[in-house]
Computed example of a mutant assay.
Amino acid sequence: MPDDETQIRTLITRWADAVHRGDLDGVLAGHAEDLVMYNVPPPPEGLRGLAAYRALWPPFFAWQATGARFEIDTLDITAGAYVAYAHALLRCGSPEELAAHPGLRLRLTFGLRKERDRWLIAHEHHSFPHD
């Protein structure tokens, strides 16, 4: 069985690939039912639960279908026996946005926990730096 860091890297990479493809089932896979997410768009208090998380993706997929990118640039992971965190930078934007701001990266932080020998994403935080 792969080590914890490899398992988490695979989980997050598959998640990002599913987002890029617009694959909702793939995006939801590996997330805890009691997930908490803080995202770029409202609500400022974040989202709680897998149903709320599911509902936020269709508008993003519609925007992304216009030609936007969503791809991991860097991913760092720290894993303990039962909890872990990861942080990543992603290229996320339309071709025009990325051409105008080539260094702009979406910042992601993940909190994970291990349940029954399986890593689950329990927390996600997405943000862009302020100009």
Rank of each mutant, 00 (worst) to 15 (best):
Q7T: 03
F61P: 05
G80L: 02
A18S: 12
D131K: 15
L11G: 01
G26D: 07
F61T: 02
L50P: 05
G111A: 07
K114D: 02
D131T: 14
P129H: 12
A99T: 15
L28P: 00
V36P: 01
L98M: 15
I12K: 00
R9P: 05
P44T: 11
E115M: 12
L50R: 12
H31Y: 03
P44E: 12
A18Q: 05
Y85R: 02
Y53K: 04
R69P: 04
P2E: 14
A68G: 05
D25A: 09
L75D: 01
E33G: 04
T66M: 13
D76W: 05
R14N: 09
D117H: 06
H20F: 11
P43L: 06
G111F: 03
E5T: 01
D73C: 08
H31W: 02
L56V: 13
R113M: 08
H130M: 13
R118S: 10
M1R: 08
V40N: 11
W119G: 00
P58E: 06
A62P: 12
P59T: 13
A32F: 04
P42C: 15
A55I: 11
L98T: 10
R69K: 12
A52N: 08
A29P: 07
F128Y: 14
I121N: 00
A79D: 00
A65R: 10
A84Y: 00
C92W: 02
Y85F: 04
L120Y: 05
P59D: 08
F61E: 03
E115V: 15
T6R: 04
R14A: 07
E45P: 13
V19K: 00
T74C: 06
F128W: 15
G93S: 08
L108W: 03
V27I: 15
R116C: 10
A100K: 13
Y38Q: 09
R54H: 09
R113E: 05
T109K: 03
G80R: 02
T13H: 09
P43I: 10
E115K: 10
G103R: 11
R91I: 07
G26E: 06
G111H: 04
W63C: 08
L35E: 01
T66N: 14
L104N: 06
P59C: 09
T6N: 04
P43E: 05
H101W: 13
P2S: 15
E124C: 03
H31C: 09
M37V: 14
D25Q: 13
K114I: 03
A29C: 12
N39K: 05
D76N: 10
P2I: 12
P43Y: 08
T109H: 08
Q64M: 13
G22F: 01
T74I: 07
P59W: 07
S127M: 09
L35A: 03
D17V: 07
T74S: 13
R107G: 07
I121Y: 00
D4N: 11
G93M: 03
W119S: 01
A100G: 11
A100V: 10
R113V: 03
D3L: 08
N39E: 14
G49K: 07
A122K: 02
A122R: 04
W63F: 13
H123M: 12
G93F: 01
V36L: 09
E5R: 03
A32V: 03
F128H: 14
R21A: 09
L104S: 07
R48H: 15
A18G: 06
L24G: 02
H125S: 06
W63Y: 14
D4S: 10
I121V: 14
G93Q: 03
L11Q: 01
L56I: 14
D25E: 15
P44A: 14
S127A: 10
T74P: 04
T66Q: 15
